[in-house]
Design a binder for these strands. Structure first.
Length: 267
DNA sequence: CGCAGCGCCTGAAGGC
DNA sequence: TGCCTTCAGGCGCTGC
């Protein structure tokens, strides 16, 4: 499930091959989530940017090609792509290569919008600050968390307090910061610890080329290695590497959550 | 307006 | 072996 580190890895892989290229052909399937892909036809790519989990491909006509990978979206450069059953869209570049978008579960999304106009993508329009934005400090983060009565985990996944955190990195960061993901109120000090833990977890994810549990691939088809470094996510039933107590699994607002009851007390 | 709940979607895995 | 059920989960949408 691509979260910020996976999307950033994809962004870095796309950038050198995409900037300066003009889109000369395009195709898509009939699922409305992907039918905007051909709207980028004729445009020249100026920048490959990212906000949270969204790829924002800036084009010379002041529009943006927005791509969200959803759960199983994979972008790849290919010379002569086999149009497999899961290909949802593809763009032919003026150097003869195709950029293909495959997405088994079709949770991804493609949109072409006027630059910065995100009304059709409400989560992007209301996205919180980038994790590595220096103007985001612990006080601001704590205030944003406090604004809501939602559980901490749910609030993090809303993308409002901070952009780009999904289920994996939320569990990892809460574990590292010793805060309970089901908590509805955390202290200023806990928020400071959590912000630092989120930054460390995401930075590690990027450094390791992302987390590949099943579907995630970079644009070269390779896997990441961060799955080998996870301390909490997906390890329910195994001993906590910090205290030895068994990690447990909970469901909060429909999201499976792993935590250590000893290291992460509710208060 | 905030937020809980649901639906989308398919393949893997587990139960019988 | 094969059928059926459950699960994974980000985000958009609906309705309270």
């Amino acid at each position: 499930m691509p979260e910020l580190p996976e999307v950033e890895t994809v962004r870095r892989g796309l950038e050198p091959g995409l900037v300066g290229r003009t889109i000369v052909d395009a195709r898509c399937t009939s699922n409305p989530k992907f039918t905007s892909a051909p709207d980028a036809l004729g445009a020249t790519v100026e920048e490959v940017n990212r906000r949270g989990k969204y790829l924002l491909i800036a084009m010379a006509d002041d529009r943006e090609l927005v791509i969200h990978l959803g759960m199983t979206g994979v972008l790849a450069f290919e010379i002569d792509p086999v149009r497999g059953p899961h290909e949802r869209a593809a763009w032919l570049l003026d150097d003869g290569r195709w950029l293909t978008f495959t997405d088994v579960r079709q949770f991804g999304r493609i949109a072409v919008v006027d630059a910065g106009s995100y009304e059709s993508l409400p989560t992007l329009a209301a996205l919180g600050p980038e994790p590595f934005d220096e103007s985001l400090d612990a006080e601001m983060f704590w205030r944003s968390l406090r604004q809501s009565k939602q559980r901490l985990k749910t609030r993090l996944l809303s993308q409002r307090p901070i952009a780009g955190v999904g289920n994996i990195y939320a569990d990892e960061a809460c574990w590292a910061a010793r805060v309970h993901p089901g908590s509805r109120r955390i202290t200023r000090a806990q928020a400071a610890e959590l912000l630092e833990a989120i930054r460390e977890a995401l930075a590690a994810g990027i450094a390791n080329g992302g987390t590949t549990l099943r579907d995630y691939r970079n644009v070269s088809g390779g896997t990441g290695s961060n799955q080998d470094e996870l301390k909490c996510y997906g390890r329910a039933g195994e001993p906590c590497s910090r205290c030895g107590d068994l990690l447990v699994s909970r469901v909060y607002d429909g999201r499976t959550t792993t935590l250590c009851r000893t290291c992460q007390p509710m208060r």
